[in-house]
Design a protein around this nucleic acid. Structure first.
Lengths: 116, 116
DNA sequence: ACGACATTACATCGAATATTGGAATGTTGA
DNA sequence: TCAACATTCCAATATTCGATGTAATGTCGT
């Protein structure tokens, strides 16, 4: 069995320094939260500014949207503040937008061949 | 009910131009594939160069690792080439590394408070 | 073509996750 | 404090996902 070591370049560029198990888990959790079209759509709408839950309810149930926002909140992708009876959600930071756009770019790039 | 439009800044910066449903789905699929510690660990190991499946089997079953690689392949995160009986997997592009590192950075940044 | 080996494909099962209705919580204005 | 409203919490159900054993595929050397 074992017999195909390649070991090409020991690139010391782009150093992340051995991600720990915890780091991997956190990062995976972050990606997992991003891994749903409905949640991505929410994030996208939040790019235009903060919104309260009621504003974000489309055809979905309120509790559904609330749960999605909760997921994004747990992943630190959004923050929220209360104003009167409303809870306003907002993107956590510009970082998120970048991740988002990078991913869309990558996703498009890699699927050009297969036509849209 | 409906009554809390905010509409802050119509930021024309960072333009992704209305992601279509398909784009959202693809992007979500990409993130979903990244949303697992074991798969991230595989990607991390592939940063050092291409590896065949046998080399990547740790304590896990071969079929398990193969399935993970398949998931990454479907998401266009890795490519593979055949050499004799071995299939060598490789990161699809530098894009992937960037996404990965951005995410780790974000994940760390956002959890500093809670101690490691 | 045959036997050995590397890897994938399929089917299954248990675990994790999403959706949703309804009850509970918190906030406001009177 | 009470009524109305915005949102979350909880529990049940439905769906999706990951790990894995086994069968199948593909490749090599002879």
């Amino acid at each position: 069995m074992e017999a195909c070591n390649q070991d090409e370049h020991h690139s010391p560029q782009s150093v992340v320094a051995e991600p720990s198990v915890q780091q991997l888990e956190r990062t995976a959790a972050l990606f997992k939260a991003l891994g749903d079209p409905a949640r991505l759509a929410l994030l996208y709408r939040l790019r235009q500014g903060e919104r309260c839950v009621g504003d974000l309810v489309g055809d979905d149930k309120l509790s559904t949207v609330s749960a999605r926002l909760q997921t994004l909140l747990n992943a630190n992708l959004v923050t929220r503040r209360r104003d009167a009876r409303h809870l306003y959600y907002q993107l956590a930071d510009q970082h998120v937008v970048e991740l988002f756009e990078n991913a869309i770019a990558h996703a498009n790039e890699k699927t050009l061949i297969q036509g849209d």
